[in-house]
Design a protein around this nucleic acid. Structure first.
Lengths: 232, 232
DNA sequence: TGTTTAAGCGTTAATATTACACTTAAATTC
DNA sequence: GAATTTAAGTGTAATATTAACGCTTAAACA
């Protein structure tokens, strides 16, 4: 602090915010979690989950804290996306905003939470007008999600720990916005040998039932160490 | 400003810095441009090109200004990489740093500039200990460069406007750290139809000489619009 | 018991990738 | 000016990957 005074005190300081984009999957479509903003300006407008960085926390900590405060969510997959610094992006003052992108299975955000915190899922194809540059952030996050999903095993963050192959396929179809061949999809995903088949079936979506699988991080790591990459 | 006072004034403010990573290619190896820091703390230590954001400029503007002030470089390819916000990343005070990654053909940074500004190229395999988290930034930038280079035409930013196919191949070999088959490489790059062959040869590297090519952004766009992607 | 519904499974054709060696153009040397 | 040297430039066959395609099965329900 003494040092800071000495060296940097001539330079201007800025408000630094964090905005969290939360993507979800409900078995059918990709969703975005939004809420109505709790403070001015834009109080009551649709918004991502944003807040200000504090003195005693890192950006990552801030992202987790803010998301938790505004949604109740904790321990979820999150990665830094991009930082937005246009001069007039916020009409109430100069704010540098660091956007984070989070992924959860939509069912993890229950109706109860939703009522308590007032956050709701919207279909990614019907995202309302969000405040400031938040729509831009969502677009960027979505592009990144699409790119990442085909070369890294992040799709599993959007599914429950146990899932069926038809569910997994539906997820990738939702992400890539196309249809996939059932047999080719199974062949490909199973040939990577990163899933373990459980002795249980999910009986909710068909009479026959579909076997449940888990993504095995250890197997994945082994595959990577062997020089192979995840690809779908 | 009135609004800012009203709404945000309770929140803390932070110094915001920009750090520029400059990657170059000299025909043989990938290089990193570094210099000895011009201010305390760490005055005289190896560093990326960093400076503080000003009130009246966007992050992008700051990145361009800072790079220009410290190296003389202007109008070069640059993209935002990642923002670093650990509490004690800078011993002289809390600073949020936004890292940018720039690409240039190494020859564009001449010996003259180098003398004037004191910046020098170092081989990416022999990067010295840099200040603070700058080595981490370089690693991240390099990983991103590797990923991007195989799916987007950013490699051309590392070559002069006119280049030969052997030069282009050498570039990708340097980026991916492997060797490529001459015939297969040509086949692939030419099949995308994004290069135009010139009626000139570069005679500096062989008796026979090698034809010069240019990357044609218009052709590239046409290819993308047709639904095809760049891939090497 | 028959019907319904989604799950699960294998093969062939088409396409993309890899491996591989000789010829050519121009400068340099003898 | 003939012979030599050097990197540029070119095609084809083998292999691997991807894409296309329809029938059987398990379990619930009528």
């Amino acid at each position: 602090m003494g040092l800071e005074k000495q060296h940097y005190s001539l330079h201007p300081k800025f408000h630094v915010a964090v905005d969290c984009i939360v993507f979800g999957f409900d078995g059918g479509e990709l969703k975005l979690l939004v809420h109505k903003r709790k403070f001015e300006p834009y109080l009551g407008h649709w918004s991502l989950f944003g807040g200000f960085l504090k003195e005693d926390e890192s950006l990552t900590d801030a992202a987790n804290r803010i998301l938790n405060e505004l949604t109740g969510l904790k321990n979820i997959y999150m990665e830094q996306l991009q930082t937005y610094g246009e001069i007039d992006r916020d009409p109430a003052g100069r704010v540098i905003s660091v956007a984070y992108s989070a992924l959860i299975p939509a069912h993890r955000y229950s109706a109860a939470y939703s009522r308590q915190y007032g956050a709701t899922w919207v279909n990614l194809k019907e995202v309302p007008r969000l405040i400031m540059d938040h729509n831009q952030m969502v677009e960027k996050g979505l592009r990144r999600l699409r790119r990442r999903a085909s070369s890294q095993p992040i799709g599993f963050e959007l599914l429950p720990g146990e899932f069926t192959l038809p569910q997994l396929q539906a997820l990738y179809e939702a992400i890539f916005q196309n249809t996939l061949d059932k047999r080719n999809f199974r062949k490909k995903i199973l040939s990577m040998d990163v899933l373990v088949k459980l002795d249980k079936k999910d009986m909710t979506s068909s009479r026959k039932g579909a076997y449940l699988y888990r993504f095995d991080r250890r197997k994945y790591r082994r595959m990577v160490d062997a020089g192979n990459g995840f690809a779908i």
